[in-house]
């Protein structure tokens, strides 16, 4: 969005402008490539279905957290480049969530609708929680294009605030299915999400931004750079 300014032709310049994009795309493809490679080499362990489930689920969750980390990073440090990769991160998170779901219905349950309904959904409430999060992410993925952004205007921002409840549902999904002995990991992720959401709360955000700007000489764009209306900003009455 903000990256369309004329770029120097030298490669070095290009990389300086785009290193985060490159890192995002390469990093986001890694878990998928790892799974594909090991799938074809018969190397996903004795229970490949569970490995697929765990890797796709974790990848979706981590990408979602990274997506939600861009704005807090901006608030706390003033670093803006992260904002430009939010859409990509969100779309990758959705892609892994979709793979996670596909693994559940195709490989785990063999597309047996009765098994899925009776056994998969009825007795595992956390499946419904995950499914709800996936539906929310689907709506965000479909409307992630510039066209939809224009068509929906203010509603777009409101719609994309769905990423917050979706994140909470993802954490609930992960926590609920874990055994008592394995609750620590989901709790850590949930705590991280809590922190990322907390920083956005208006009074806190203003306090942090104010503190940061007071300690700084007005060297570059300190005019509280209007956050690009996107996935992460709640509707602002001033805009």
């Amino acid at each position: 969005m903000t990256n369309k300014q004329p770029v120097g032709t030298s490669k070095k310049n290009w990389l300086r402008e785009n290193w985060l994009r490159v890192l995002t795309h390469v990093g986001a493809w890694l878990p998928g490539m790892w799974l594909a490679w090991n799938w074809f080499h018969n190397n996903l362990g004795a229970d490949p279905v569970t490995t697929l489930n765990n890797v796709t689920g974790r990848a979706a969750m981590v990408l979602l957290l990274l997506c939600l980390a861009a704005t807090p990073l901006y608030i706390v440090t003033g670093w803006r480049q992260g904002l430009a990769v939010r859409r990509a991160l969100g779309l990758y998170a959705f892609a892994y969530a979709a793979l996670h779901f596909a693994n559940f219905i195709v490989l785990d349950y063999g597309l047996d609708l009765q098994f899925i309904l009776d056994d998969g959904i009825q007795t595992k409430p956390y499946i419904l929680v995950g499914l709800t999060a996936l539906l929310a992410l689907s709506a965000l993925a479909i409307t992630s294009t510039k066209g939809w952004q224009k068509r929906l205007r203010r509603q777009w921002t409101r719609l994309h605030a769905l990423i917050y409840p979706a994140g909470v549902l993802v954490m609930l999904h992960f926590f609920w299915q874990a055994k008592a002995a394995e609750k620590i990991e989901p709790l850590l992720y949930a705590a991280l999400l809590g922190l990322l959401l907390l920083v956005r709360v208006t009074p806190l955000r203003k306090a942090i931004v104010g503190r940061r700007q007071r300690g700084k000489t007005p060297k570059r764009s300190t005019i509280a750079a209007p956050e690009p209306a996107a996935l992460t900003t709640p509707p602002q009455p001033t805009e």
Binding site: A46, D47, V49, L107, G110, F115, D118, T123
Partner: peptide, 11 residues
Amino acid sequence: ATERRIGQTGR
């Protein structure tokens, strides 16, 4: 009600 045999897909 169902189970997955290790090494197989489906239930």
